[in-house]
Design a protein around this nucleic acid. Structure first.
Length: 264
DNA sequence: ATGGCTGCTTTGAGCAGA
């Protein structure tokens, strides 16, 4: 049976990226795609173009900011959809959606950026990471196949940052942000990209300004983490740098992992 | 390079991202 391919992509507005997204779906035909930064509500989500490209979708949206989705090839069923951290905290940010597809529990997250170290948004980022750990503990099982995918807004290690010394003071690579991510993955998650690639210099986000992409001045902040029963079946992982090229790209590029197929 | 883009907004200059 062909492998199950899971991708994650912060599209920086699903409406602005509609043509790029549907072209990419047709070309790559991943089985599952986690999207972040939809920047729209359900009513304005491009349901028809995505269906026409062969995908069903479930979304947690909001106007202007945030918004996450899970797409699945129409042949696969998308069941047991959950939205939000569901921990009783009042939080209007649409940053998490989960669904079961192809025998895998898939979670699409958009972690807070944190803006600047010490700000209210920084505190929200760290608290959100604690809550994500709580979500995994109470709503998920580490012994079952699960993929936690998304824009984590944290580069885990020095080899994931083009200039670690400069970025250490920033929200994306600050030691406390790295610890917050490590406290989530210690629940029982493996970084699928690092199962297959040891070298540095592979990034998933580049600033739009100053020719950062051309100079490869980026950070690896988008990830596909897998529980042990899924990580054991990870066949390959990659970053689709091609999708960052050309006219009007997202500032992020897709990250992809493929797995030996698991029956539902 | 504390921003050199970009997308969004009851269409405008300001916010937010990373």
């Amino acid at each position: 049976m062909r492998p199950l391919t899971i991708a994650t992509w912060n599209v920086n507005s699903v409406r602005a990226r509609e043509a790029r997204l549907t072209a990419w779906l047709r070309e790559r035909q991943p089985d599952v795609v986690c999207l972040q930064e939809l920047k729209c509500e359900e009513a304005t989500f491009p349901w028809d173009p995505i269906r026409f490209a062969g995908y069903e979708a479930c979304i947690a949206g909001q106007k202007t900011y945030n918004g996450v989705a899970i797409l699945a090839r129409a042949e696969l069923s998308l069941t047991d959809v959950q939205r939000g951290l569901d921990d009783g905290e009042p939080d209007p940010h649409a940053r998490l959606i989960a669904a079961t597809v192809g025998g895998v529990r898939v979670v699409s997250v958009y972690a807070p950026n944190g803006q600047s170290v010490g700000s209210d948004k920084w505190n929200y980022k760290l608290a959100w990471y604690d809550r994500l750990r709580g979500f995994l503990e109470t709503r998920c099982r580490a012994g079952e196949p699960l993929a936690l995918c998304g824009d984590f807004n944290v580069a885990p290690e020095a080899r994931d940052v083009h200039d670690p010394a400069r970025w250490e003071a920033e929200t994306l690579y600050h030691p406390r942000a790295r610890q917050a991510l490590a406290d989530v993955t210690s629940w029982g998650l493996t970084d699928t990209f690092r199962q297959h690639v040891d070298d540095g210099g592979f990034y998933s986000w580049w600033d739009y300004r100053a020719g950062s992409f051309h100079k490869n001045m980026g950070l690896r902040i988008d990830h596909i983490f897998a529980t042990a029963p899924l990580a054991q079946r990870c066949l390959a992982a990659s970053i689709d740098r091609e999708a960052r090229k050309g006219k009007d790209p997202s500032d992020h590029t897709p990250v992809v992992a493929s797995f030996e197929y698991l029956d539902a």
